[in-house]
Write a protein that binds this DNA or RNA. Sequence first.
DNA 1: TATATTTGCAACCAATCGGTTTCGTATAAA
DNA 2: TTTATACGAAACCGATTGGTTGCAAATATA
Lengths: 106, 106
Amino acid sequence: MRRDVFQAIADPTRRAIILLIAAQAMTPNAIAEHFDSTRQAVSKHLRILTECELLKQEQSGREIYYQLNGTKMKEIDKWLEQYKKIWESRFNQLDEVLLTLKNKKK
Amino acid sequence: MRRDVFQAIADPTRRAIILLIAAQAMTPNAIAEHFDSTRQAVSKHLRILTECELLKQEQSGREIYYQLNGTKMKEIDKWLEQYKKIWESRFNQLDEVLLTLKNKKK
DNA sequence: TATATTTGCAACCAATCGGTTTCGTATAAA
DNA sequence: TTTATACGAAACCGATTGGTTGCAAATATA
């Protein structure tokens, strides 16, 4: 069972759920109302998001509130961090490499 | 055909390719040497990464150099941006909601 | 020119994914 | 206590995924 943050956010419905929940914690039924698919399909998405810890649950009677786990979202940001210096530099890195290769041949 | 940045980075091999290429532009053969799977499998990953514009190609004779497209990586960062204020706040948002609900019932 | 190298593409296959329907359980309401 | 509601779990299904092998095209080299 692959329960990976990146795999979790790959699905557009799950990203929509994240967006929905970010504003306010919600129950599965309330979330499902925002989508065309069945409650069970949404529930499956919630399971995946919860298993990779992107969502946290809080039981309140027979209802379960799902909310976003900021800590885990931060992990994606940490992954991106290592590439920021690349997209912030204006150099076209490939052009540089090719230039080097071509010069070596001469 | 779903060619989505989020779907592209969902695969761990593709993330490894991104990491590899980030340092320096490389050819498919050179990239494939770093993995256990066949060259064709890696080539498929490169196609997916290129189609969603995470990678750029530059032909040099019969060789093709792949490099990271920072602009597209930035898009993921832009998506994350909207959640940053959430994970930076110390409040447990759910607790607040539940508290409000409980108070209403009284 | 003949041969080797680099690469992409197509066909195929098992595993996984996202969806459905059906069911069981726990809590709230009548 | 009986009935309704909220939810998760399981079984099933077609589509997609990530891998393979085999092949064709283009470029470099002998």
